[in-house]
């Protein structure tokens, strides 16, 4: 049984399909390479520009432009063919989305439920700012205590005194 996923295979499962897969990869890339060498109109960079926005439909979380499996080579080929026939990148991405599902997109769609992912951090920021302002004001409004809180280990006390001394000296020098 084969799974066209990426690096971390359950060791040993690939077994005899190994060389066949390697051959398949090489053949796949050979086709790609040959097409490019023949001066095909679509460059690898154009294909990668579209593939970059997509995920390998089968692997877990691998962008399509870096995925090395034969299946991914096939999909990049598909992108190449579609670009050659004049499809625009947005159309190709829409095609992939319809054919393989939303998870093939690198960025979740902005409409619908997944739109939340874009708005929630913004909401969080506003809420965070609001809470910060409220808390700051509440703390600043407290009457000043007469007895200062004594910090038990004045580990920075020396540094503080030292700093004050520095400041004094600097002022002296600046005169």
């Amino acid at each position: 049984m084969q799974k066209a996923s990426g690096k971390r295979q359950a060791a040993g499962r690939m077994g005899k399909w190994a060389m066949a897969l390697v051959a398949g990869v090489l053949v796949g890339l050979l086709i790609v390479g040959a097409a490019a060498a023949q001066g095909g109109k679509v460059t690898d960079d154009q294909v990668n520009a579209v593939a970059k926005q997509l995920n390998c439909p089968v692997c877990e979380n691998v962008p399509l432009d870096v995925c090395e499996t034969q299946a991914c080579a096939q999909w990049r080929d598909l992108i190449r063919q579609k670009l050659a026939t004049g499809d625009k990148p947005e159309q190709i991405i829409a095609y992939f989305r319809a054919t393989y599902g939303d998870r093939v997109l690198q960025s979740p769609p902005r409409e619908g439920f997944t739109g939340l992912i874009w708005s929630l951090p913004f909401v969080g920021l506003i809420a965070g700012l609001a809470i910060l302002v409220v808390v700051l004001r509440r703390m600043a409004a407290q009457p000043k205590a007469e007895a200062e809180v004594e910090v038990e280990a004045k580990t920075d006390a020396v540094a503080d005194e030292y700093r004050k001394r520095l400041e004094r000296e600097l002022k002296e020098l600046d005169k």
Binding site: M1, Q2, K3, A4, S5, A98, T99, G101, R103
Partner: peptide
């Protein structure tokens, strides 16, 4: 036919092919 939008395979929880 194709599993368009990869909607059928999740229902069967397949891990790969062939199953």
């Amino acid at each position: 036919g194709p599993d368009l939008g990869t909607k059928i395979s999740p229902k069967y929880h397949i891990q790969g092919v062939p199953e």
